[in-house]
Every structure is written in structure tokens, then in C-alpha cells.
Computed example of a mutant assay.
Amino acid sequence: MTEDRSGDVIVVGSGVIGLTTAVVLAESGRRVRIWTREPAERTTSAVAGALWWPYAIEPQDLARTWALRSLSVYEELAERPDETGVRMVEGVMGGTLMDEHAPWATARLPGLRASTADEYAGPGLWARLPLIDMPVHLGWLRARFLRAGGVVEERTVTDLGEARARAGTVVNCTGIGARELLGDTGVRPVRGQLVVVENPGLRTWLVSEDAESGTTTYLFPQPGGLVLGGTTEADAWSLEPDPVVAADIVARCAALRPEVAGARVLGHRVGLRPVRPAVRLERDASAGGGEQGVLVHNYGHGGAGVTVAWGCAEVVLGLVPR
């Protein structure tokens, strides 16, 4: 007798989007398995900065809704930072004006204000935001998923048909992998390179946008070191750190915070952000249904996957049948 799998869910992908989605589904009572080519600690999510902020993501209005829902979750998780990897940290978003983010942010972020000249040489916003230590957070998400009865299987997926034959619902959280898996050429890699150095004592984060050069420079104090960034190289696929780029990142950060100059380098990180003209978060009508089951897509979040993960996961929950 064939086992009934119609109520099962397979989530393909184990980055922060896939893991968070799987957690929400498993805790709702679904039988959930994650199929992943590589463990979470080797995904793009593991090398993210990762500051909560709806960065370069469309559609903007929906992204802000997803982000604010996620913010509520992160505020709760920040009460247990050693366990969850989430801390609420103060810092300045340089080059950003207050009126660009009212009222969506001002109504939700207590104390959001224009930065002072002592905090940043130019216009900027001071804010207290979630800053996530991704290796810790991904490990915590995986453990929470397993506690909810979930199962993780490491396997390479080349055709979603295989997953759809094994479960009533498949949720595609493959990020940049959707380009090849679905032939979605709208998904493009935007390469990001980071340098991790010994923290010379910085306790606040800083993001500085240079409109003329198109660069964004940032410093994120994490428990394992000070994370320096970054780059936004469209259509670049290399995962090898470029020493010239690394030196430029350190120089840019030192120009903002001179104490960084000469800090001992602890490591280099490279990741490919899955950028798309708009996030694909929907039930796939072209995939049929009935005996074929349901296919839901949740990918294309660019550099804002951490920011919107919980909000998007709750949308997926509403799209998955019981």
C-alpha cells in the first residue's frame, strides 16, 4: 500500500528564506522536509552582514509589510541573543533622509531620527535595528525546525518534478538556483564581498551610501569580529575573494572609522545575492494541481532575505493547503 504523501510539504533550499519558511510550516502542524544541495552554513545567507533593512527589494510596499512583520519576530528573538544570534544594535544609515522613510518606518522604529554631525559627516538616519549573526541564527533555525518534527535531507534537485512526486506541496526557496532550475533569467547574481577583521572597539553599525560612485560601505560589529563591506557586482558569479577588492573595502571603511586601519584580517566572505525585478512569492498557477499537488515560489529577495524572511514565510503558510 502506497503511503499517502498528499499532506506532506517539501521545501527546496535551506538559506534563511527556506529555513524560516520550513519552521513556520512545521510549527503549523504540517509534515515538512527540507531538500537542500548544501547545508545552511554554506549558503549565501551564511555570509550575509546581516542588518535588518528593506534593501533593494521589490515590490516595495509589500516588502515593507513583510519586513515589519519580520521586525516583530526579531525583536522577540533579540531577548535571547546568544541562542538566536539576533541583537538590537544602534547605528547610522548614512546618505538616507528621514522623509524617505516616513511614515512606514517612523511609526514602527522608536527613536528613529536624523543623525548628528558627530555620528556621521552628512545626512543620515540613526536607528536601533536587528543585527543578525548569521551562522548562529541559521543553526538556531535548523534546530527549531528539527524540534518541530522537520527533516533535512541533503540532495541536489535538478527538477522540481521529483519533489512534486514525493509531496502534496512543494515550496521553491532556491534563491539564485531558480535561474537554472526554472529557467528564470530574471534572477541575477549580485556578488557581495566582505572582510572580517578584529573589532578595534566599535559597538555601533554604520552604512554609507555614495551615490556618485554607486558604492555602499558598511561596518557591522558581530560577536566573531567586525564585518566590513561591501560590493554589488551584477552578473558576477565568482565565489573567490578578490584581494584587490578586499583592500578597497578596508580602505573605504577606514576612511569612515580610522580605527579600522591596520585591524587584523580574520577572514573573507563572498556571496551571490539572488536579485530579481520583484520577489516571486505566489502559488504557481501554471503548475496545475489536483494529483500534481501545489507548487509555491518564494525567491528573488536580493540582499533583503533576512529582512523579510518571517513575513514571506507567513504568506507561504497562507498559500499551502492543510
Rank of each mutant, 00 (worst) to 15 (best):
1 M>Y: 12
1 M>S: 13
1 M>Q: 13
5 R>E: 05
10 I>N: 03
11 V>F: 02
12 V>M: 08
15 G>A: 14
19 L>M: 11
21 T>N: 05
25 L>V: 09
27 E>L: 04
34 I>M: 03
34 I>Y: 09
35 W>A: 15
37 R>S: 15
38 E>S: 15
40 A>W: 09
43 T>K: 00
44 T>N: 13
45 S>R: 06
47 V>C: 06
49 G>M: 03
50 A>N: 12
50 A>D: 09
51 L>F: 06
52 W>G: 04
53 W>D: 02
58 E>G: 07
59 P>L: 09
61 D>R: 13
66 W>L: 10
67 A>N: 03
67 A>E: 04
69 R>E: 07
72 S>Q: 14
72 S>R: 14
73 V>K: 08
79 E>F: 00
79 E>Y: 00
80 R>L: 00
84 T>M: 11
89 V>G: 04
89 V>I: 15
91 G>R: 01
92 V>C: 12
92 V>Q: 10
93 M>V: 14
96 T>Y: 00
96 T>N: 08
99 D>R: 15
107 A>N: 11
111 G>M: 12
111 G>K: 07
112 L>Y: 04
114 A>V: 15
115 S>W: 01
117 A>D: 05
117 A>T: 12
119 E>R: 11
120 Y>P: 00
125 L>H: 12
128 R>N: 15
133 D>K: 01
133 D>S: 06
134 M>N: 03
137 H>M: 12
137 H>F: 13
137 H>C: 14
138 L>S: 03
138 L>W: 05
140 W>A: 06
141 L>P: 03
142 R>M: 07
142 R>Q: 14
149 G>P: 06
152 V>G: 11
155 R>G: 14
155 R>T: 15
156 T>H: 08
157 V>D: 09
160 L>D: 12
161 G>I: 10
161 G>D: 08
162 E>K: 09
164 R>I: 08
164 R>H: 00
169 T>R: 06
172 N>W: 02
180 E>H: 14
181 L>N: 07
190 V>D: 00
191 R>W: 03
194 L>T: 05
196 V>L: 04
196 V>Y: 00
196 V>G: 04
197 V>Y: 02
197 V>H: 00
199 N>Q: 09
200 P>M: 09
201 G>I: 09
202 L>P: 01
202 L>F: 08
204 T>I: 06
204 T>R: 13
205 W>G: 07
206 L>P: 05
207 V>K: 01
211 A>W: 09
212 E>L: 13
213 S>I: 00
215 T>G: 05
218 Y>A: 04
219 L>T: 10
220 F>Q: 02
220 F>H: 10
224 G>S: 10
227 V>W: 00
229 G>P: 02
229 G>I: 00
231 T>Y: 02
232 T>H: 07
234 A>Y: 11
234 A>M: 12
235 D>E: 15
235 D>P: 04
236 A>H: 14
238 S>Y: 02
243 P>Y: 08
243 P>G: 11
248 D>W: 06
248 D>A: 15
250 V>D: 05
250 V>C: 07
250 V>N: 06
252 R>L: 06
252 R>G: 14
256 L>P: 13
265 V>F: 10
267 G>M: 02
272 L>V: 10
276 R>M: 10
276 R>Q: 12
277 P>R: 13
280 R>T: 13
281 L>F: 07
282 E>P: 05
293 G>M: 06
298 N>T: 01
299 Y>M: 14
302 G>D: 00
302 G>N: 01
302 G>V: 14
303 G>I: 03
309 A>W: 04
311 G>E: 03
317 L>C: 11
320 V>N: 07
322 R>S: 11
